[in-house]
């Protein structure tokens, strides 16, 4: 009960941070350099790991469904199953989890370190709100990059599924049938839902990581604790939001 209360207040504070950051939206045009820098970190450097992991997720998905469906002689449906699961669920969730692990942790570490070494205090004495300089560019960057990461995750997941479905001997599904299963039964709305999901996940991950980083108090040891907390809170938020967004988008 106390833990729940703690998490809820954590998310509430993160939301307040969002509100404070959005007040600085008018400064955005002047901060495009920072936005691009963050885009580079959030999008470009995260892209390879997202690509590799979603390829394997798609492969495993095809392998599992293929193994189960061959019993019914229904391997033709692998494309549809992999297509829908990657688009609606696994693509966005995988991209968001990797974002939390790779970027969220780095952000919380960076901001925690800035807090511990009084860089944040220095900003405050300079009348530069940390929300404006440290939080807003990251939030904007994740909004720009998350759909790219998610569509990459989805498409590469599909490809991974296709490779397994056609190459594994007991499935042996013609890639054309596999992709027909995707194009006929996966609507663009499914992909769009996935992108919306990814957007919300990614945004939450970055917001939570910023919040946890800026909340850090104490010495350098707290930096590590903050990273752990940021990742844990991000994962909780992803899974928690996943359920409700899925329900809302159904």
């Amino acid at each position: 009960m106390r833990i729940l209360h703690q998490y809820l207040s954590e998310f509430g504070q993160a939301f307040l941070l969002l509100v404070r950051s959005l007040r600085h939206l008018p400064s955005l045009p002047r901060q495009m350099g920072r936005v691009i820098e963050q885009c580079y970190l959030i999008g470009y450097t995260t892209f390879p790991i997202v690509a590799i992991l979603s390829f394997f997720i798609g492969s495993v998905l095809a392998l599992q469904t293929g193994y189960s469906l061959q019993t019914f002689g229904a391997v033709d449906f692998i494309g549809t199953i992999v297509g829908l699961s990657m688009a609606r669920e696994l693509g966005p969730v995988m991209a968001a989890i990797l974002l939390a692990g790779r970027v969220g942790s780095a952000i919380s570490a960076e901001l925690a370190s800035m807090k511990v070494y009084q860089e944040v205090d220095a900003l405050i004495t300079m009348n530069i709100p940390p929300e404006r300089m440290l939080v807003l560019p990251r939030l904007i960057a994740v909004l720009l990059m998350m759909p790219v990461l998610a569509i990459v995750a989805i498409i590469i997941g599909w490809l991974g599924g296709a490779v397994v479905a056609s190459q594994v001997s007991f499935i042996g599904l013609d890639p054309r049938i596999y992709f027909d299963g995707i194009t006929n039964f996966v609507a663009f709305k499914d992909v769009l839902d996935g992108l919306i999901k990814a957007q919300i996940f990614g945004f939450s991950v970055i917001l939570i990581s910023c919040h946890v980083g800026l909340q850090t108090r104490g010495g350098p040891r707290e930096i590590g604790n903050s990273v752990t907390r940021a990742v844990v809170l991000s994962l909780i938020a992803i899974l928690f939001l996943d359920y409700f967004i899925t329900q809302a988008l159904l």
Partner: peptide
């Protein structure tokens, strides 16, 4: 109100922006 005051604080440890 604080932004109305233009003050600078030289931190004991510097507090430079490491990035």
């Amino acid at each position: 109100e604080r932004p109305k005051v233009r003050l600078a604080l030289v931190f004991q440890a510097g507090a430079l922006f490491n990035s």
